Simulated assay, not measured.
Amino acid sequence: MTGFAVIRDDTPTAAIPKGAVVAMGNFDGVHRGHRAVIGACLDMARTKKAPALAVTFEPHPRKFFSPDVPQFRLTDETAKLRLLAGTGLDGAVILSFDARRASTTAHDFIQHELIGRLGVQGIAIGYDFHFGKGRGGSPSMLVAEAPSLGIEVDVQPHVDFGDHPVSSSAIRKCLEEGHIAAATEMLGGPWFVTGEVIHGDKRGRDLGYPTANIRLDPQCSLKHGIYAVRVGRGGRHYDAVANFGRRPTFDNGAPLLEVFVFDFNEPLYGETLDVAFIAFIRDEEKFESIEALIRQMDDDSARARAALAADHGAFPKLGALR
């Protein structure tokens, strides 16, 4: 295989590598628990001299079962794939999660998808991952059926942070509360978003802080406030300070990510940037005067620079997709 392959439901059979070892999961965030499963997959694949693939689902099954419930995803499909590509895997199998797949029993899924279509030699899975109709497929089921299937199964235990297992839901809660350091620790690297720079009201120019404005997913529930961030652009990283919120001093409008890149004066409109969140500086607040706001922005910038200098250039390890 050359590069990181993305295999979908309509990928021709001849283009699918057979005999792979797979890491199976939803992988929202590709956090440290997920990386333990991926590590087990990579180890098994090396032993068997086989390709190593992730098997995952899009959209997230929660979106199918609860379409009207807002879902704050840590990573959309593209971000998830870029993170998976940075782990050393050879590729990912993206399975569309729809009514047909939701009604497929775990036994049929194993026989038709894993054995029949992919011809897997081994499966790595987390201790709490379930699949198939009614969540009938479990790690214990796979272990029990492995000998008759002729495959090896590795079940990874939970990875703990403090007194609790690392989980996507725990990371979401940290981001919602502004606990960036804890989220970073559980993820194994900074949480990041990707978006296109759009035109704003140009108010930042008048304040001496011209910003690159990015509209995040409406279901993103990151805490509103000021952050030290690092911006990825064209393979280079730039230190920055950002506000995510409604700009209560001015219009209290729709949430917007406004990024001021330090020591940078090139136009960014229309470009797609990665923004990694390094530290939470303070809550968003309303100021009684422009002068007071500017004084606070000066202080925010100084604190952001200090936080960024202390973290030694951390940025998510992202792979290229083909």
Score class of each variant (00 low, 15 high):
residue 223 K to F: 06
residue 292 A to R: 14
residue 166 V to R: 00
residue 11 T to F: 09
residue 260 F to R: 08
residue 185 E to Y: 01
residue 204 G to H: 12
residue 269 Y to F: 15
residue 26 N to E: 04
residue 17 P to F: 11
residue 66 S to N: 10
residue 54 A to P: 06
residue 159 V to G: 00
residue 128 D to M: 06
residue 276 A to I: 11
residue 183 A to M: 07
residue 93 V to A: 09
residue 18 K to I: 07
residue 109 F to W: 12
residue 295 R to L: 14
residue 215 R to I: 10
residue 232 G to E: 07
residue 26 N to L: 03
residue 12 P to Y: 10
residue 264 F to M: 09
residue 91 G to V: 05
residue 109 F to P: 00
residue 162 G to W: 02
residue 9 D to V: 09
residue 241 V to R: 00
residue 280 F to Y: 15
residue 66 S to P: 00
residue 206 D to L: 14
residue 254 A to V: 14
residue 92 A to V: 07
residue 73 R to P: 00
residue 283 D to P: 02
residue 285 E to S: 15
residue 41 C to A: 15
residue 259 V to Y: 08
residue 41 C to V: 07
residue 93 V to L: 11
residue 11 T to A: 11
residue 102 A to R: 05
residue 180 I to C: 03
residue 212 A to G: 12
residue 203 R to V: 13
residue 23 A to L: 03
residue 238 Y to K: 04
residue 287 F to L: 06
residue 49 K to I: 08
residue 107 H to M: 01
residue 43 D to L: 14
residue 114 L to A: 04
residue 136 G to F: 01
residue 106 A to V: 01
residue 25 G to D: 11
residue 64 F to C: 04
residue 24 M to C: 09
residue 189 G to Y: 01
residue 213 N to Q: 12
residue 98 D to C: 04
residue 292 A to H: 15
residue 252 N to D: 15
residue 8 R to L: 09
residue 320 A to D: 10
residue 238 Y to E: 08
residue 167 S to Q: 05
residue 312 H to T: 13
residue 180 I to D: 02
residue 17 P to A: 13
residue 290 I to A: 14
residue 65 F to T: 07
residue 62 R to N: 07
residue 16 I to M: 08
residue 243 N to D: 11
residue 64 F to W: 15
residue 159 V to P: 00
residue 123 I to Q: 01
residue 243 N to A: 13
residue 263 D to V: 08
residue 86 G to V: 06
residue 2 T to K: 13
residue 155 V to S: 08
residue 106 A to E: 00
residue 60 H to I: 04
residue 150 G to W: 09
residue 19 G to Q: 12
residue 133 K to P: 00
residue 276 A to Y: 05
residue 201 D to H: 14
residue 124 A to V: 07
residue 83 L to C: 03
residue 289 S to E: 09
residue 60 H to K: 06
residue 281 I to S: 02
residue 223 K to A: 14
residue 126 G to L: 04
residue 178 G to Q: 09
residue 321 L to A: 05
residue 105 T to C: 05
residue 21 V to K: 05
